[in-house]
Amino acid sequence: MSDVVFKLVLIATVLLVILHLAGFLIWVERRLLALLQDRLGPNRAGPLGLFIIVADIIKIFTKEDWIPPFIDKPVFVAAPMIIMVTALLSFAIVPFAPGAVILDLDIGVLLFLGLSSMGIYNVILAGWASNNKYALLGGLRMAAQMFSYEVFMGLSLMGVVTLAGSFNLSAIVHAQREGWFIVPQFLGFLIFFIAALGETHRLPFDMPEAESELIAGYHTEYSSMKFGMFFVGEYISVTLFSALMTTFFFGGWLGPVLPPLAWFCVKTAGFIVVFIVLRAALPRPRYDQLFAFGWKFILPAALLNLVVTGALVLWKSS
């Protein structure tokens, strides 16, 4: 009984924290981007400009929720929900601290890969349902981009899975007691990080919404909270991928002195900052460059990483 209560409390806490964190990240990203560009950013409303989050939320809720007459309504309405659902569901498998995991699944990694491959649909369907050529172009780009980067992401994680000998995320964290997987799996980490950029379609890989070419890409026709869901969904997936990078390569909640949860939060926050710094620093590559880089460079590298890791593990065990 107490187990069920604990799980319910955990689910409620995770949902609350993640959703608020997504709002908080709006402020973090704006302030941090500004600081990186030698500006100050929003600092007027409230202490450090923190109330800008409240202002943003009020604004986005009270805007007119305009559904254009030329769109495919059911798909148009369903698309923004998909990203929220898939990104939030993926948090079920993340171990925040020893024992504090909602779903201690033996195929956790596979569940995450499956959910992230389902997450593609939000962009594709939004792009198609908008009945707008720019949105459609964004959706098509997204389909191709996420489809290819999905492959590398799965392959790069296989090295970690081989070392840990399990698809269970808690087991992966436990397997890093002797040493974090960033050392033996550095190539895998780089590939996973690049794939995460492609999956979350953050800059520099934001082909599907490239403002300068496609207006706003797949969410051109969206307004009000439907746009807000894309916006928040992006931040949720950034948080998710940061948490997963922490779990897979940086020892999850492992660390000295501080409590496990604190270590987890510190590492995750670090990766979120890296995401934002990359956004400030790097220009957007051309569309074909992205794919040439993916298929001609990352795919062989991921395969090589997998083969070498597997060979070493076999050699050690024999």
Binding site: L105, D106, I107, L110, L111, L113, G114, L115, S117, M118, I120, Y121, I124, L125, G127, W128, L136, G139, L140, A143, A144, M146, F147, E150, G154
Partner: peptide, 25 residues
């Protein structure tokens, strides 16, 4: 569970995306 995950990743996640891609084109 392994087949279930592969069903979602490969069929629901990848193959249908290609179908959708073609239909959208």
């Amino acid at each position: 569970p392994f087949v279930a995950a592969l069903e979602v990743i490969i069929y629901a996640g990848a193959i249908i995306v290609l179908f959708l891609f073609v239909v959208m084109m």
